[in-house]
Design a protein around this nucleic acid. Structure first.
Lengths: 206, 206
DNA sequence: CTCGATTGTGAGCAATTGCTCGTTTTCCTG
DNA sequence: CAGGAAAACGAGCAATTGCTCACAATCGAG
C-alpha cells in the first residue's frame, strides 16, 4: 500500500516466467474471492500459487498492482463479451432484443465469479489509475447507449443523455446486486423483468 | 477484528460517559469517511474524539462494533425519514407522486454524507449481524412495496414480486451511484428521470 | 468529607503485514 | 560443458495494527 507505481519491475521473458505470473494472478483471484482484500495477504497468494513471495514481487511492485490487474482484466472481458455478441449476429431488430443482449452480457460477466467481483468493486481500495480506466469505460458505454437511443424511433424519452446514464447504470448495478445476492434460480425472471422495465421506460407514452 | 461479540462491555451510566460515547461515534464517522475503513484506525478515532483508546474500548468491544453501530444508525435514519414523510401528509394521489416521495427520501439519506456511506456499505467488512439487519430491512421494504403495487389499479406489471424487488433495488442502487458520483448539480434531472423510469415501467402497456 | 464505584488514561504488547535482499536453482547461448 | 543471465526462493525486517491492563481522576451517595 506504499508504492504508487503499478508497472511490473520485471517483464517475464521465458515461458516459465509467464506461467509463474499467470499462476500468481489466478491464485490472487481465488484468495481475494475467498478471504477478501485485507485478509488476502501477499504471502497467502504466493503460497496458494505454489510460489514464494519473492517471485510475486518480481512481477508485481505491490499488492494494489495485483488487484488493478485483476479488475482491468474483468472489465476487459465484459467489453469483449459485448463486442463478441454484437459481431456474432446482426443487431436484433427490436429494442427489446437489443436490451436483452446487453443484460445477458452483464449477467454472464458477473455470474463468472461473483465473490471476486464483490471484492474487486466493493471492498478493495481503487487506486486513481483504475478509477480512471473504469470511468472511461463507463463513459464509452453511456455514449454508445446514447447513440443507440437517439437513432431509435421507438424511444420516446426526452432527456436522452440522462436516460442513457440511467440505463447503463441500472443494468450494471442491478445485475451486480442480483447476482451477488442469493438468488441462483430466479435469474430468468430477473432478466425478463429488467428487460421489461427498460423497454417500457424507453418506449413509454409521452 | 477478533472478537465476534458486538455488545458493549460497559453501558454508560453518567452523563459524562454518554457524551464520551457519542463523541467517539461522531469521530469514527469523520475518520472513516476521510481515511476509509482500513486506515481508520482505532487510535486515530480516539485521538480525533479527544479521548484515549482505553475509553474507546470501554464502550466498543472491537473496531467492527463501531462500524456496525454507524451503519445501523444510518439505516434507521433512512427508515425514519420515510416514515416521517408518510405521516407528514396524506399519501400522494398519483403513483408518480408516491414514487417521488421514496426517491426523495433515498436521495436525502445518501446526500447526508456520501463518503461515509461509501465506506459503510462498500469497502468495510459487513459482519453477519449487520447483514441480517440490513436484509431484514430490505425485505420489509420490498414487501411494503409489493403491497402498494398490488393495491394500485394503475400498475400493470405481471410479476409483482419481482417488480417490487426491482423498484426497491433500483432506487437504492441508482441513488447511491449518482450521489456518490461527481454530479452535484444534476440531482433534479436525475430525480425526474428516475421517477419517470419507474412510473413508465409500472404503468406501461401489457 | 469519605470512600467505593464509575469513568478516563496511555504506554506498550502480541500479532500481522507488505516487502527486501542475499542466495540458490534453472535456463539459454556458444 | 562453461558460465552468465534470468528466475525462483524464503528468512526475516521494519512498520503498523487492534487491543490490554494497571493506574489515575472524577463522581455521587451517605
Amino acid at each position: 500500500m506504499t508504492d504508487r507505481r503499478l508497472r511490473p519491475r520485471k517483464r517475464p521473458g521465458q515461458l516459465r516466467a509467464v506461467e509463474t505470473r499467470e499462476r500468481l494472478l489466478a491464485a490472487a483471484a481465488r484468495v481475494f474471492a475467498e478471504h477478501g482484500y485485507a485478509a488476502g495477504t501477499t504471502n497467502r497468494i504466493a503460497e496458494a500459487a505454489g510460489h514464494s513471495i519473492g517471485s510475486l514481487y518480481q512481477y508485481f511492485p505491490n499488492k494494489d498492482a495485483i488487484l488493478v490487474e485483476l479488475a482491468a482484466a474483468h472489465a476487459r472481458s465484459g467489453i469483449e463479451s459485448i463486442r463478441r455478441r454484437l459481431e456474432d449476429g446482426p443487431l436484433p431488430e427490436t429494442l427489446d432484443g437489443r436490451l436483452r443482449l446487453f443484460v445477458r452480457a452483464a449477467i454472464d460477466n458477473h455470474r463468472d465469479d461473483p465473490a471476486l467481483h464483490r471484492v474487486l468493486f466493493e471492498q478493495a481500495p481503487r487506486p486513481p489509475e483504475l478509477l480512471e480506466y473504469l470511468q472511461e469505460a463507463e463513459r464509452e458505454g453511456i455514449s454508445a447507449a446514447e447513440r443507440l437511443l437517439s437513432a431509435d424511433p421507438q424511444v420516446s424519452v426526452t432527456d436522452v443523455a440522462m436516460a442513457a446514464r440511467l440505463v447503463v447504470n441500472a443494468i450494471e448495478s442491478l445485475v451486480h446486486r442480483f447476482v451477488s445476492g442469493d438468488d441462483p434460480a430466479h435469474f430468468d425472471r430477473f432478466e425478463n423483468e429488467l428487460v421489461d422495465m427498460l423497454t417500457r421506460y424507453l418506449t413509454g407514452p409521452r
